[in-house]
Amino acid sequence: MSEAICVLGALHMDLTIEVEHLPSVGETEIGKGLEVHPGGKGATQAVAAARLGASVSLVGAVGDDGWGADLRSALLAEGVNLSGVVSSSAAVTGVALRARHASGESATVIGPGANRMVDVAVIEAAREAFAHAKVFLCQLEIGEDALSAAVELARASGALVVLNAAPARELSREFLAKIDVIVANRREGARLARVEKDECSDSGLMRRIAALGPSKVVLTRGKRGAMFFDGERTFEQAGFPAERLDSTAASDAFCGALAVALAEEQRWDQALRFACAASALSAEVQGSFPSLPTRDVLEPRL
Rank of each mutant, 00 (worst) to 15 (best):
A4W: 01
I5K: 05
I5W: 03
G9K: 00
L11T: 01
T16V: 15
I17V: 15
V19C: 07
V25M: 06
V25A: 14
T28G: 02
G31M: 03
E35R: 13
P38D: 00
G39H: 09
K41D: 02
A43H: 02
R51S: 12
L52F: 09
S55D: 15
L58V: 02
G60H: 05
A61E: 03
G63Q: 05
R72D: 04
R72H: 06
S73R: 14
L76I: 07
E78D: 10
G79P: 04
L82K: 11
S83K: 13
G84P: 04
V86C: 00
S87A: 15
A90K: 15
R98Y: 11
A107V: 09
T108E: 13
T108M: 11
G111K: 10
P112L: 07
G113P: 07
R116N: 15
M117H: 03
V118W: 06
V118Q: 06
V120M: 02
A125R: 05
F130Q: 03
K134Q: 13
L137G: 03
C138D: 10
Q139L: 00
A146P: 09
A146D: 03
E152H: 11
A165C: 04
A168P: 15
E170R: 15
S172D: 12
E174C: 10
R187T: 13
R187P: 01
R194L: 12
D198A: 08
E199M: 01
D202Y: 07
S203Q: 12
M206F: 00
P214F: 04
G222S: 14
G222H: 07
A226F: 10
D230E: 10
D230K: 03
E232M: 09
E232V: 12
A238H: 13
G239I: 12
F240Q: 07
P241I: 08
A242V: 12
L245N: 14
A250Y: 02
D252N: 09
A253S: 14
F254D: 10
A261V: 05
A263S: 14
D269L: 12
L281I: 13
A283Q: 02
S288Q: 09
S291C: 02
P293N: 13
P293D: 11
R295K: 15
L298M: 14
E299V: 11
R301L: 12
